[in-house]
Design a binder for these strands. Structure first.
Lengths: 188, 188
DNA sequence: GCCTTAAAGCTAATGGGGTTAGCCAAACTT
DNA sequence: AAGTTTGGCTAACCCCATTAGCTTTAAGGC
């Protein structure tokens, strides 16, 4: 029996592909794809839950990188536009990865938390061009995340029954830009 | 062996309670709580997946009713305020039910789709006070759903690392009211 | 180049959850 | 009271996750 040459990374990669193709991420299926028996996976990964967490951490890193690349050299409304489109596109193209990022990260998983922080950091930086500080910056960042995540999640769950979703997304970007521009005056 | 006096409704109710208490909704646990053996559940419910769908449909109906009650007699910004608070509160108090509503409804489940439509309808009606029509009304409704769902989902997943979430939510309401007020002019 | 050894694969066995088949008693119908 | 439908049950079978423990590979020290 020649070795399959696996590694934690290889296993996580295959699980990610499986998830993004819409399959259920089971150890049975991952093992089958890797040409290996199920218990062999335990040499690289600490069970099904741990594999899920690794997939999530990988997904968050990739999302953060994608957002960072999309917004490089941009700021203010133009950064928001680029970021929103990159976010939606990535989520659409990696539905399994995106879904994996929604689980609350386990407290003991430093890698996943770091990846989370990185993604939020990119968003936070992109909003710097609006001149927000302190609580305003935090609140605006959270608002952005909520809008983008909410839209993408509803789209993924087929929550928008009718056509015209692209049109709605264009409006969403404009609304978001406007909201951020006027954020400080929201204190009424 | 005296009968337990079950019914589809009773099973779904118990599954809902279980979900909202944070437990995993398994047939084993539902049966245990009802004082019955697992296969007996099949006399009332068509398997685990079907039970999930029924829980989701029930949740959507309840959410729709809650939103409707919260907004009765209100319109415009005041309706949005009431609706946003009711939405967040209900989701916080019924985390399992809320999570169940996120699965895409199966195409053949008329009850679940009807419940979805009802919830969206309440939101749609609440926005009538802003004088939106046609695509604008649809886009604004979707934007609202995205913001509210995104915020609640991130909050539930412990996605906001720092404190001050209540403050952020107040800002969110104000931002939403402002956005809806100026929606038609978003065409730039 | 051997010899040791850690790592990476394997088989076998256990346990939990879901599902089906088929039996039997309780309750309803007339 | 007899017949029928209904709601419970037991037994058996899947699928997936996990653990224990064995074997072989491949890498490193001498």
């Amino acid at each position: 029996m020649p070795r399959a040459g696996l590694s934690e990374d290889r296993v996580v990669e295959e699980a990610t592909h499986l998830a993004d193709e819409g399959g259920a991420v089971t150890l049975v299926e991952v093992a089958r794809r890797l040409g290996v028996q199920v218990p062999s996976l335990y040499k690289h990964v600490d069970g099904a839950d741990a594999l899920q967490a690794l997939v999530a951490a990988r997904a968050k890193r990739e999302l953060a990188d994608t957002l960072a690349r999309a917004t490089v050299g941009k700021s203010g409304p133009s950064a928001v536009d680029a970021l929103a489109r990159a976010y939606r596109t990535w989520a659409d193209e990696h539905p399994g990865s995106y879904a994996s990022t929604l689980r609350a990260p386990s407290v003991d998983n430093a890698a996943e938390i770091a990846a989370s922080d990185k993604a939020v950091g990119v968003l936070f930086d992109a909003l710097a061009g609006f001149g927000l500080h302190g609580d305003d910056a935090i609140d605006a960042t959270r608002y952005c995340r909520a809008v983008l995540h909410g839209f993408v999640a509803l789209e993924a769950a087929n929550g928008f029954g009718l056509p015209g979703v692209d049109r709605t997304f264009e409006k969403l970007i404009t609304a978001l830009q406007l909201t951020l521009t006027h954020w400080p005056s929201l204190t009424i």
